[in-house]
Design a protein around this nucleic acid. Structure first.
Length: 274
DNA sequence: CAATTTACCTGGGTGC
DNA sequence: TGCACCCAGGTAAATT
């Protein structure tokens, strides 16, 4: 599943192929993704230049003079840059053509999204899907004090508060379990029961896990394909994720699995006492 | 009202 | 071989 590291690696992968380049064509073969792809997308983008790429949480952004294109990869989406003449394959739903190359969205489960936010609709941050997002994990504002202050009225388990995305963005199911392990915090612990000192460990653990994954090119768990077409080679050496029953890499205690809000969670009962 | 929980979208993989 | 079922991320709706 694309989490923040995969989205960031994708952004870095496509940026040299799209930044500063003019959209010469748009093809939408399947408009029904998570939401409909705007019917006037071609009209909006034809002849326009991509000024820059950016990322907000797991949203990949293409910045134009007159607005922003939002791309979300959902749980099975990937972007590739290919020669424009390459015939589309199954589940390749949207093309942005840049002369001789094409940026192509592949998304079998269609949980992804392609949306247009015109500049006259206001600054990007006011978009309904972005307005409620928490702070970026690599923003200096993301620290122990932020986590502490934002969780005083949150009785829910820390795992679910992190996944909700309104405190900090980009911490998906896999890296959430990994970060909590590194911070030695049990996923079921109520967010408001955690103090500043332990939140300092957690903030650092989240940054470390995400940075490590970005550095190594993203997880290859399922659908991620590097933007240049090569397989992402990195598979994080998970401490706990998907390791139920296997020995903890630190203390050899059997890793446990549980369900929180329809999501699987993994933790070490010895290393993560509370 | 804010926080929390539940339902939902899709299709690949799995187990019967 | 077919088919019911599980699972995933993130949002909207429902509930507490």
């Amino acid at each position: 599943m694309p989490e923040l590291p995969e989205v960031e690696v994708t952004r870095r992968g496509i940026d040299p192929h799209v930044s500063g380049r003019v959209v010469t064509g748009v093809a939408v073969r399947q408009p029904m993704l998570r939401w409909p792809v705007p019917a006037d997308l071609a009209t909006q983008l034809q002849g326009r230049t991509v000024r820059a790429t950016a990322r907000r949480g797991k949203y990949l952004l293409l910045e134009f003079e007159h607005g922003h294109l939002l791309i979300h990869l959902g749980m099975s989406g990937s972007l590739r840059v290919l020669p424009a003449a390459t015939p589309p394959r199954l589940h390749e739903h949207v093309d942005l053509v840049f002369g001789e190359t094409v940026l192509r969205l592949h998304d079998p489960r269609r949980f992804g999204a392609v949306l247009w936010h015109p500049r006259e609709a206001g600054v990007l941050g006011t978009h309904a899907l972005l307005a409620g997002l928490g702070v970026e994990p690599f923003d200096p504002a993301f620290d122990a004090d932020h986590l502490y202050r934002q969780t005083r009225r949150r009785s829910a388990p820390i795992k679910q508060v992190l996944l909700a995305g309104d405190v900090v963005v980009g911490v998906g199911n896999i890296y959430c379990s990994e970060a909590l392990f590194r911070a030695r915090i049990r996923p079921t612990t109520s967010a408001r029961a955690i103090g500043r000192a332990r939140y300092a460990l957690l903030a650092e653990a989240i940054r470390a896990v995400l940075a490590e994954a970005i550095d190594k090119g993203g997880s290859t768990l399922r659908d991620f394909v590097r933007a240049d077409g090569a397989r992402g080679y990195f598979q994080l050496d998970y401490y706990v994720y998907d390791r139920a029953g296997e020995p903890c890499r630190v203390c050899a205690t059997a890793v446990r699995a549980l369900r929180q809000g329809q999501r699987s969670t993994f933790f070490c009962p010895q290393c993560q006492r509370r």
